[in-house]
Structure formats: C-alpha cells, structure tokens
C-alpha cells in the first residue's frame, strides 16, 4: 500500500525554522503566501520585500529573491522593483507599525498609483519587534509599553483602518480584511491571498490583504486566549470583509 502525502512544506518556503514566538500567526501567514505562489506557479519569478518589524527576516523563510527595505518603505522599494521587472510577481509583507505609521505615505501612494503589486498587511495592534509599543491600530484602552494607562483617543487618536482607507482610492483592484482565528476564516484568508496574487499575475493592479492577527507575547496572553481576545475585541473595530473587488475575483473563483 502506498502512502499518500497529505501535508508537506510548500516549495516556496525554505527549510529555515521560523524564529517567531510560539503561537505567533506570522508562520501561518507565510505559509499561505507560499501556497498561493506555488498554486499560481510563479515561484521562479516572485520577488518579496521584507519590512522592518518582526517579519524583518521574512526573506529567510522563502525560496525566492528578496529585498529587505527600510521601515515603512517596502511599497516604494516594491515600486522600483516592479517597474524594473514588470513580469515579476512582487509583494510586500508589512506589519502595522511599518505600514500604518511610518510608511503611511508609501502605502497610500503605491496603492493610488495602482502599482501592480500585492501587499500583505499583518495587523496585530502592537509593535512586536521593539517590545510591545502602541501601534496606530492599537485599540482604545489597550495597554502597551507606550500607552501604559491604555490608549486614550483624546491624546493618541483612534485605531486607524487601513483597508477602509485604501478602498476609498480608485486605483486598487482588491482590498480585503481576513483573519485566521478559525479553520473557516483560515480558508477564507488563504483564498484572499491567492486572489490577491492571481490578480497581480493577470496584471490587473494593486491588491491588498489585511490579516488581523495576534501577538501573544506582547499582549501577555496565551495563544488560544489571544485568538479569543482578537475575536471579541479586534474584529468589532476591524470588521472582516472585502472592501473593494474591481474585477469580481471572489465571485469568479
């Protein structure tokens, strides 16, 4: 009797073990990216851009060419790469501090120019790598290193909703928010990431997938509790759904 292989590492993922904290969502999201690229058979022409943040070493975990960008600048770097090699599949992988704070200008304008790239935005409401500081997406009342009394809207503003903002622009072709807190949502996230890369492969335009994620270490919670907290606290502020789908990629699939 022959054994059927039901689970293996995607070809686009390298053998390097993840350095992420136990329970962190980054590993799963990396895998979803790798699976999408494998399924679309574009691994030999994909170029990634790693951010500054926990996923600064993203390039270690994938098997294709990578650029490591400055904090927030990944969409600008990706613009340079995609314009130079238009037949490549170019994506950035960015956290909330990177994309929604220091790199706000770069992401908005790359989206507005309709750069034919894909952005994977991991929103876990906190700065991970630097040790748990307040992010633009930190919830009201949430305690962090730099909001020890809880985020106060009067002085620190409100959680910024990047997907909604980007969806107001005319150029992006796909803007969606997903999470991986359950198997059902994981499958939706996988499909969204696939859709985003598929649109790029077809040369359609700028695609943006926000993944609402956990940070057990800096939230000070166990992984399972973190997903519960995410469901109860983050999803009301960052509702799941597709904000823009110019070519109806979700229906056509």
């Amino acid at each position: 009797m022959t054994m059927k292989k039901v689970f293996s590492r995607p070809a686009s993922l390298s053998k390097t073990p993840f350095h992420y904290c136990p329970g962190c969502d980054h590993g799963v999201i990396h895998r979803l990216v790798a699976e999408a690229i494998d399924e679309l058979e574009v691994g030999d022409r994909t170029i990634g851009v790693a951010p500054v943040g926990c996923s600064v070493f993203a390039y270690d975990y994938f098997n294709f060419d990578f650029n490591q960008a400055a904090h927030g600048r990944a969409p600008a770097v990706a613009t340079g790469i995609k314009r130079t090699r238009p037949d490549s599949i170019v994506f950035t992988y960015q956290g909330d501090g990177d994309l929604a704070a220091i790199g706000t200008a770069e992401i908005i304008h790359a989206a507005n120019r309709g750069e034919k790239m894909t952005v994977i935005f991991v929103n876990n409401a906190i700065y991970g790598m630097t040790g748990g500081q307040m992010a633009p997406t930190t919830l009201i009342g949430m305690k962090t290193q730099t909001s020890p009394y809880g985020r106060d809207a009067a002085t620190a503003g409100n959680p910024i909703k990047m997907s909604e903002m980007i969806a107001t622009l005319e150029s992006p072709v796909y803007v969606t928010r997903v999470t991986i807190n359950s198997v059902a949502n994981l499958m939706k996230a996988k499909k969204a990431i696939y859709n985003a890369f598929k649109l790029q492969k077809e040369g359609k335009g700028f695609s943006f997938v926000e993944v609402v994620a956990i940070c057990p270490t800096n939230w000070g919670k166990k992984p399972a509790d973190s997903h519960k907290w995410l469901t109860e606290n983050m999803l009301p502020v960052f509702p799941l759904g597709t904000f823009k789908d110019t070519f109806g990629v979700e229906k056509s699939a």
Partner: peptide
C-alpha cells in the same frame, strides 16, 4: 514619487532589480 524618502527607496528597489 510622493516624497524624496519614497523616491530614494524606489531607487533602492530598481537598483536592486538590476536597473
């Protein structure tokens, strides 16, 4: 570009892609 910051990072991207 939207700023000089973005412009030089586009240069970084294009240069790294061989341009």
């Amino acid at each position: 570009a939207e700023s000089e910051v973005a412009a030089i990072n586009m240069v970084y991207g294009a240069g790294s892609a061989g341009a």
